[in-house]
Structures are given as C-alpha cells and as structure tokens.
Amino acid sequence: MPPLPAVRTSAQTVVAQGVRVEGDFQGQGDIVIDGEVKGNISTNGLLTIGTHAHVQADVDADSATVAGRVDGNVNVKAHLELKATAKVKGDVRCATATIESGAVLQGTISIGGDATTSAPTKDESESPDSQSDE
C-alpha cells in the first residue's frame, strides 16, 4: 500500500478567489483570504489578505499580512505587514508594522501599545514613502 498523505492538523481557514463570505467570520487559527468578505473578520492567529481579496469588513487579528483591498478598520495585536499592493481604507491599529513602498492607506494609523493617531516612525516603517493621508 502506498504511503498516505498527511492529515491536516493545524486549524487553517482559506477563502479562495471566486468565493464570497458574508457575516461575522471568526477563526481559531490562521486565515487566508483571497476572495470577498463582507461583515467582520476576527482570529487569534495570522490573517493573510491576498492580492485578489476584497474585504469590506472590520478586521481583528493577532497578526496580519495585507496584499489586497480592505474597506474597514484593521486592529492587529502584534505585527501588521502591508504589502506594496495593499489598499486599506480605514483606521489601522497595531503593535508593530512593516509597510512596503506602494501600499495605499486612507485613514489613521496607530502603532505601539498606547499609540493613538500618530504616523508610523521610521524605525517601525520600512518604507517612509508609503502613501497615507495622515
């Protein structure tokens, strides 16, 4: 008998291209989104928003990587990474952030434990020329 494939053990949720999710979307592990989500997203793991994704939702995650479009507030406990293709329309809060050149952010950004509406510092942002209306 041939060896069998590994059984998936980590709780990973994937919303791929061509699929639409509406409502209060909660996950216990890592979530990958490359489709459409409308409502709220929350997870205690890593949230990855891919280049094809269109998220019209408030986002709550432990850490996040955004490469697609987000219309809503983003609240990340630990690290947030905005890729060059990211387009975020909403307020962002996180502990630390990496913002690539070309990322678009329309809203306020708060970085650090008790940050309010300050712009990212040079140490926290890898790219000072990222577009932000703040």
Binding site: P3, L4, P5, A6, Q12, V14, D34
Partner: peptide, 20 residues
C-alpha cells in the same frame, strides 16, 4: 499519515494535495 509533516508549499500557504 499523522506522523508525517504537513505538506505545505502553495503560494498562499494552502496545503498541497497529495497524489496517491
């Protein structure tokens, strides 16, 4: 199966199907 490591490798982190 359960002793084998997870097969990862797709660009977005999804798990690769195994061919049997």
């Amino acid at each position: 199966q359960s002793e084998q490591p997870l097969q990862r490798g797709r660009k977005n982190g999804t798990l690769r199907h195994a061919r049997v």
